[in-house]
Computed example of a mutant assay.
Amino acid sequence: MLVCEIFPEERGHTLREYRGDRQSIGGLSLDKELVFTQTQFCLKPGDQLYIATDGVSDICNPQHKTFGKNRLKDLIRTVANYTFNQQKYNIERVLSNFQSTAEQRDDVTLVGLKI
């Protein structure tokens, strides 16, 4: 999972990434107690928060190359000034063009919020 926040232009228009714990929440591990790191952060008006499943960065193209977290973060930075409708259109277009004719292998979920 990738969690990023984008600060507005007057605060440097920077992206901060919060990394999740590398453990599954399903499957055969249901019989053991899972412990996850908790992170708190304060968002201010104008901040944007993006939460993505690993399926977004794991999208493969026909050459079996993954989209990757760095490319996803660059894409989020690129569209951050757009309206959310424009962001959705551009993100879907970029991901679809990258995937091309390759089969989707995982869920692809990206949620964006503006405070």
Results as ranks from 00 to 15, higher is better:
M1K: 04
L2T: 11
C4W: 01
C4L: 11
C4K: 01
E5F: 09
I6E: 02
I6W: 03
E9S: 15
E9N: 13
E9P: 07
E10L: 15
R11F: 10
R11P: 03
G12L: 05
G12C: 10
H13A: 15
T14F: 08
R16F: 10
E17H: 13
R19N: 15
G20D: 04
D21Q: 06
R22E: 11
R22T: 09
R22G: 11
Q23L: 15
Q23F: 09
Q23K: 12
Q23N: 11
Q23S: 11
S24N: 13
G26D: 09
L28Q: 06
L28D: 09
L30C: 08
D31N: 10
K32I: 13
K32N: 12
E33V: 13
L34E: 04
V35H: 09
V35D: 05
V35L: 12
T37N: 07
Q38L: 11
Q38T: 14
T39K: 14
Q40K: 13
F41Y: 14
C42E: 15
L43F: 10
L43Y: 08
L43S: 15
K44H: 12
K44F: 07
P45A: 12
G46Y: 03
Q48A: 10
Q48V: 03
Y50A: 08
I51Y: 04
I51A: 12
A52H: 00
D54M: 04
G55V: 04
V56M: 02
N61H: 07
P62T: 06
Q63S: 14
K65R: 13
T66S: 07
T66P: 00
G68V: 01
K69P: 02
N70G: 06
N70A: 10
N70P: 00
D74G: 09
L75N: 02
L75M: 08
I76C: 00
I76S: 00
R77Y: 07
R77I: 06
R77K: 15
V79N: 01
V79K: 00
A80M: 05
Y82A: 13
Y82P: 00
Y82S: 10
Y82F: 12
Y82E: 15
T83M: 02
T83Y: 03
F84T: 07
Q86F: 03
Q87L: 02
Y89D: 11
N90T: 07
N90E: 14
I91T: 00
E92R: 06
E92N: 11
E92W: 01
R93Y: 07
N97S: 08
N97Y: 04
F98P: 00
Q99M: 13
Q99T: 03
S100A: 14
A102P: 01
A102M: 05
E103C: 09
E103Q: 14
Q104K: 07
R105T: 06
R105W: 08
R105S: 08
R105K: 15
D106N: 09
D107R: 09
V108I: 15
T109V: 14
T109I: 14
L110N: 00
L110F: 02
V111M: 11
G112Y: 01
G112R: 02
L113G: 02
I115N: 13
